[in-house]
Structures are given as structure tokens and as C-alpha cells.
Write a protein that binds this DNA or RNA. Structure first.
Lengths: 220, 220
DNA sequence: AAATTATTTTAGGCATACCTAAATTATATA
DNA sequence: TATATAATTTAGGTATGCCTAAAATAATTT
């Protein structure tokens, strides 16, 4: 069994790999809130286990084995988030932190039971895809809200899950995955978005909008 | 926050204190499956935190602060066991192991939600009392099954939870807490018990019977 | 009471995973 | 191209929590 720290490193490498391109020691260290020297040490250890590839100064990449483990942890995390949300009513701005601790200790058996209870879901409360047991990640077709123009309507597909305060803010507008809204006006010069959600008007700053991804975009 | 190991030590000291009298370094080490020298080290650490009292060669005792923490962990454990059993259908011989890992990471919030879901229960699937939020342990009035005589009937109150194989064995006879049975015959010379459970006859060895505690004993 | 046996503690090591500070290597600037 | 800056790695240190082996203490037997 891997240590919790090692699992966190694999998961983080996967996420950074998805997001941007090269995962450098420094980027990884910053993401995990440790010093670069600590990341170097763990990378060395993971490399010796054939879970990552790494050439000095060239960034780190997951091997197939490493990717499989990363996806398993991510699956645990997202199923737990949805379970806590649906079965126990934990507010969506709290499930991330809770799942962060549970994901390392939950058994495959309990996970399978939660999966069945939830009806084999494909997305967590923030809209992030839940990999299946074989590590297949459901494709999500979404674009950043910042690409929307005046008059377009759409549905919230996914929001960033790692900022509790942001989630509470979005919750106050009912901006959950599945919620539809229409862009009334995008202020010029990278300004805020004025939108209509079920008849209610709301102003969403650009920095906030960057954390929202939408699908089903239509001109109206 | 305490480490997981420290929490396990406190819990174990509490349980050993309940069961027998003096908790020696050796007993504690054996119970936790570590070497006596390791127990000495942790006892020293816990003493420096004022969670236990200890004089060399004289055994260890929980302070009020240590006892409060021990009871909190035990509460986590037993609520988790019952939750896994009732909400997710984990078989009763599996919940102990699972809860052992979860008890250290579950938040007070999630615990409160499970507690409410379960209707503020007072016993886990093995019949062990669940301490309340203030550390008050519900009193259980039960006697060892080994004290029963021919013709007495009773209800299973509690069984030992730390032996998976034993629990499967008891499950095969339906010997769960709450199940009533009648002693048909106690074989002489510390022999086995022949009992009647809902019309079905079963033979329970004395070593197995030592793990069963009963209440509501009546002559029939 | 002395000697043997058992328990407990001390002393010294190991692995994990973090840290800081210094050295190295790569990249950007003059 | 040489030099300054930034990123990365190495070296050495901390804390936890386990280990073994040896020393100290207590309990039991003769």
C-alpha cells in the first residue's frame, strides 16, 4: 500500500497534467503546499516504484501504473463527495475537505456500495467527472463561462471545487451544475457578467466566472 | 490534533481499563500488537500531554482529558459501525475493520449527520454502547452467556466485535443483538450449550459462548 | 535472603515525510 | 558570450512511531 502522501502526489500530478502541460517540481510543490526540495524527494521515491517518469529539470509524468492509481484516488474522492452530499446532506462547500481525508481510507467494498446507492453516477456535486472502476473518465463537453457573449443561454456543467468561499458564493445564486442561465450583458474591457437565473438577475465577476464551465450554449 | 497512533493508544487503554484492572505496558503492547518498548515511548508522550498518568512499573491510567478523547474515538467507531451496517449494508463481520480506519478521519459534522440519520442510537451492531456527545456511556445490564442454566431464556445483548470469523459464525445462527433464545441444555464439565433460537436448535461451544452477553434472563 | 525469571525501560536504529540552506544546473539578460 | 537570475537538487536536520538488544527493576522461587 502507498502512503497517503504518495497518493496525494500522484493525484496532484494527474490534475496538473490535465490542466496545463509540463508538471515541474516547483509547480507540484506549490500545488501541494510543500517546498520544492520535498517534491524532489517524493518524485524520486515514486520513480523508484515506476509510478512516474522523471529527468532532472525536465518535469514529471505519470506512468500507466501511476495514472491508474491517480484515477482510483480521484474516483474515491468524487464518489465520496457525491455520497456525502446526497446521503448525508453535507453542504457542497464542505464535501471537498471531508472527502480529502476519507479518500485514502475507504475500502473498495464500501466504495462499491456507495456507487450502487447513488445509481452509478458520472459526476460529483461540482460537476467533475467520476472515473469508472476501470479508470475511464466520462467526457464532459464544456467551455469556460468567460467565452459566453450577450444573449447566450447555457447550463452550468462544472465548477472549481477547491475554494469553499467561492462555492458558497455560487450557491447563493443557485449556480449548481445543471442550473440554466442566460447572459444579459458582458461588460466591456474584461468586465463582469450580468446573467438571468430563473428570472433572478445576478452579477458575476470575471474572476468568479473563470471557475465556471458551461455546456448546451444556445443563442436566444 | 493527536496522531492516529496516539488515539489508538488512548482507546486501547480505556478498553483495557474497563475490562480488567491495571493496564501494564506489556498488556497494552500485546493488545496493540507492538513491542513493550514502543508502548513505553507512547506512554511517555501521552504523559507529557497530560492524557495519562504513569509511574514506572506501575501501569498507566487515563486522565479525565485522556478519557474524554478515548470516548470520543469510541463514539466515532461505534456510530460508524452502525452506519455502515444500516445505511450501506456492510456485513456485521466487516464493519469493525472499516470503522477502525474511518474513526480517525471523520469530522464532527459528518458524525452528527450519521447520528441523526440513525435516530440517535445507543448501541452498535454488536450491541456495544455508543457514548453520547458528552462522553456518557449508556449502561448495559448483561451477563456472560456462560452463566446461563438449563431452561433459561434470554436476549442477546452484546457480542465481542474483534473477531470476524466468530461474527460470521454467530450470524449463521442468527445470534445478533436483540435475538431471543432458550437454553435447552448445558453439558456438564464446562461443556457446550444447546439452545433453541426461534425453533431452530444450535450447539454453541463454551469458548464461543464467552463472547456472548445476554439480558432479560427468565426461567421458563 | 539470594538467585532466578519476568517485566519494563533505556539506548541506538530505521523509514517516512517534512524542513532549511547550500550547491548545482538551466534560462534569461546584458 | 558572459553574467545574473531562477529553478532544481543535494546535504543535513526534525519529528513520529516503529524496531532490537541491552540494562535496570520488580516479582517469584528456592
Amino acid at each position: 500500500m502507498l502512503t497517503q502522501a504518495a497518493e496525494d502526489y500522484l493525484k496532484s500530478i494527474y490534475k496538473l497534467q490535465e490542466k496545463g502541460g509540463k508538471v515541474s517540481t516547483g509547480i507540484l510543490a506549490e500545488y501541494l503546499d510543500v517546498k520544492p526540495a520535498s517534491a524532489t524527494g517524493m518524485i524520486k521515491k515514486l520513480k523508484s516504484m515506476n509510478l512516474v517518469s522523471h529527468e532532472r529539470y525536465q518535469g514529471v509524468t505519470l506512468t500507466d501504473a501511476g495514472k491508474a492509481i491517480a484515477l482510483e484516488i480521484i474516483r474515491h474522492h468524487r464518489l465520496l463527495e457525491l455520497y456525502l452530499f446526497k446521503a448525508l446532506g453535507v453542504p457542497w462547500d464542505g464535501v471537498h475537505e471531508e472527502a480529502e481525508k476519507l479518500e485514502h481510507v475507504i475500502s473498495e467494498d464500501v466504495e462499491a456500495r456507495m456507487d450502487a446507492f447513488l445509481g452509478y453516477p458520472t459526476a460529483d456535486p461540482h460537476g467533475s467527472p467520476i472515473p469508472d472502476k476501470n479508470g475511464v473518465v466520462p467526457k464532459t463537453l464544456s467551455i469556460p463561462m468567460t467565452e459566453l457573449r450577450n444573449g447566450q443561454s447555457c447550463v452550468v456543467a462544472e465548477v472549481n471545487d477547491n475554494d469553499s468561499a467561492l462555492l458558497r458564493h455560487l450557491g447563493s445564486f443557485n449556480l449548481y451544475p445543471g442550473t440554466a442561465f442566460r447572459v444579459i450583458e458582458v461588460a466591456p474591457f474584461e468586465g463582469p457578467f450580468t446573467i438571468d437565473i430563473a428570472g433572478q438577475q445576478a452579477v458575476i465577476g470575471r474572476e468568479v466566472a473563470k471557475n465556471i464551465f458551461v455546456s448546451n450554449v444556445q443563442e436566444t
